[in-house]
């Protein structure tokens, strides 16, 4: 029954001018989701969506920026950008102690991080398109990556894999492409502003594929 309404909603989307496309930023912690979302928001709205940090799970709540109007090669689309907390299968407060947080701060952060992950998962169903942001220097064959991408595919939500941190020596775009051969992959560096134009190309193609 839910599927029927989903299909109906997608058909409805085809016949109306979508003003706001819900674009989700998903991925593991510290892959650069907020840095990338900030880049897009700064480019088109002039303000950031959230704070970034080297400490994992800096984003512990869903952050949104509405009406982000992106113009690219004569086309124009309006997005609601949704930056989500990094999804992980474990949260150990002791891991945060390495970053000079005291025990209480670390425990609070861990508790908020678990809630953030639950919230991010609940929002999966609401997305129109999703950017899976991966750290290109890390092994992409993690079960969390496979689970999120498989989940979005099962929900028929278009996915673009963004291999972030391409400015770093260890970055390996080919390994990510080999891990997910059935999905489009684009290499960028949100921090160093590398290939953001290529990202917009891929994003507009993704949106078109989604029928918007």
């Amino acid at each position: 029954m839910v599927d029927f309404f989903k299909i109906l909603n997608r058909v409805f989307n085809l016949f109306r001018q979508r003003s706001h496309i819900k674009l989700g930023f998903y991925g593991p912690p510290n892959s650069g989701k907020t840095t990338l979302a900030n880049k897009l928001c700064l480019d088109w709205v002039g303000e950031k969506i959230g704070k970034v940090s080297k400490i994992p799970h800096e984003t512990r709540e869903i952050q949104t920026k509405e009406k982000v109007n992106i113009k690219h090669k004569g086309k124009e689309l309006t997005f609601n950008i949704i930056d989500t907390p990094g999804i992980a299968t474990k949260i150990d407060y002791e891991d945060f102690l390495k970053y000079n947080l005291n025990k209480k701060e670390a425990q609070t952060r861990a508790k908020e991080a678990t809630k953030g992950i639950i919230e991010a998962i609940k929002w999966l169903d609401d997305m129109d398109c999703v950017l899976i942001v991966l750290d290109a220097t890390l092994n992409p064959y993690s079960q969390v990556n496979i689970t999120i991408i498989g989940n979005l595919a099962a929900r028929k939500i278009p996915v673009l894999i963004v291999a972030n941190k391409m400015d770093l020596k260890k970055a390996n775009l080919k390994k990510i492409e080999a891990a997910f051969p059935q999905y489009p992959v684009i290499g960028v560096s949100a921090f160093k502003d590398v290939n953001i134009d290529g990202l917009y190309d891929s994003l507009f193609r993704l949106v078109k594929r989604g029928g918007y």
């Binding site: 999804i87 992980a88 299968t89 474990k90 949260i91 150990d92 861990a110 678990t114 809630k115 992950i117 639950i118 998962i121 609940k122 999966l124 079960q143 969390v144 496979i146 689970t147 999120i148 498989g150 989940n151 595919a153 099962a154």
Partner: peptide
């Protein structure tokens, strides 16, 4: 498990995390 079940497993794991249970590692 199905992908949707795997996601639910992560969600349930997060709900259960406490001082002694710190989460899971999973691989298929």
């Amino acid at each position: 498990l199905k992908f949707i079940e795997e996601t639910k497993l992560i969600e349930s794991t997060m709900e259960e995390i406490n001082a002694t249970f710190r989460g899971i590692e999973i691989c298929t």
